[in-house]
Design a protein around this nucleic acid. Sequence first.
RNA 1: GUCCCCUUCGUCUAGCGGCCUAGGACAUCACCCUUUCACGGUGAAGACACGGGUUCGAUUCCCGUAGGGGACGCCA
Length: 462
Amino acid sequence: MTVVTRFAPSPTGFLHIGGARTALFNWLYTRHHKGRFLLRIEDTDRARSTPEAIAAIIDGLTWLGLDWDGEAIYQSRRSARHAEVAHALLAEGKAYRCWCTPAELDAMRERARAEGRPVRYDGRWRDRDPFEAPSGVEPVIRLKAPQDGATAIADGVQGDVTVANAQLDDMVLLRADGSPTYMLAVVVDDHDMGITQVIRGSDHLTNTFRQVQIFRAMGWPEPGYAHIPLIHGPDGAKLSKRHGALGLEAYRDMGFLPEAMRNYLLRLGWSHGDDETISTEQAIAWFGLESVGRSPARFDMDKLIALNAHYLREADDDRLAEFVVGRLGTPVDAAGRTRLRAGLGGLKTRARTLVELAETARVYASGPTIAIEDKARALLGGDNRPLLAGVRRRLAALPDWSPAALEAALRTSAQAEGRNLGALAQPLRAALTGHTVSPGIFEVMHVLGRELTLARIDAAIE
RNA sequence: GUCCCCUUCGUCUAGCGGCCUAGGACAUCACCCUUUCACGGUGAAGACACGGGUUCGAUUCCCGUAGGGGACGCCA
């Protein structure tokens, strides 16, 4: 049987970390089994669903590199079919009309809570004669759920979970206005789409028992279920905006690489022995529900950053150069681009995010004039000025501008002055980069070229 | 309140009864490398929530307790 999965976000906000991981797990599971991964937009809440949120979800998935099969399905367009199923259940006596008003239900719930009883609908219209229906109230359709026994599911992650049917009430299938509820829509869509495996956040675990009851009432085969633990904030509480509950695009803007995000999200709740850096190919080959943990994981920015630094070092320089130029915010001429590209190797071992990379890349992207930070400026006064002037003369006369030749020249220079290399390299670094920290000084000079190197020294000591 | 789930270093996790003096990664600290800072290398510190069982033997199995999370909508 072909595996069919789906990612079913509701477009009421951005695609956050938790949703992204759910999508990733579905995608990996599907690709591993060579099945079909579908995208369903659960936009039945018309008031809260927005086109911006839909775009954010699609952009987020695309950025993460998770491709879905076929066109995205919009749940809101399927309401006629949902209603059809509700009415079929009604016709078979597996559902019934309920004329309770929202106020009546509120009162019922309040009373139950006050008396310490389970909070749920008491089934008062379950066997009541419809002729007793009050006028002026539109009824909802409720499922006539089993009242005895228990409903069990074999969850791919949580194991066997059983709930007494007495805990579940007769849920609303169709609202008074004829629109389907989430419970109904999900079941009908999962069935119609041929979903074989549902992988979603564990906040849906208790919903599953109700959904399973609808499947059984319709006589439909149930999909397999797997509920993955939620992601919590650093303090162990639910992920909030303070923490990492940002949209994926926020992480992109912070300079994270999609491959780093994928790897990070994968390791949150899933493991493969001691492996830490896992390529997407390996992830597809190795991924399985049995290796998904059952306890919630906390979001840890430091680990994400460390992983990002790793992937930054591994990343292709041409790709990185594109990212950096786009983030510089200032135009870069062709020569600047060439320098930047050539200097990337030394830059990327020192950066952890694309933002940091772009910041340090200004050293190569800029022309003769650069901003000098205070700590660097302090190295450009006093005795260091004549020292730099001496270095400048030697460099100007250097026949060969290779890193090796530059190093030899600086070392003999230092020796001649009776100083160690650092005493010479630091002022030079300050003059050339405007910082006290940079890639190796010979590399910097080599990438900058003779002309720019001399120009920056001149600018620093004039 | 009711029901369900979870619990190994600060964090992510390995462990599926003896291989565990509990392993790895991030973070922290120290040292090495070194023209700065990184990278890299070496090392240190750091955990089985608690209490009962079961067993020759429990981090691993069972039961409680505590703590955390989730669900209880005509939201999704």
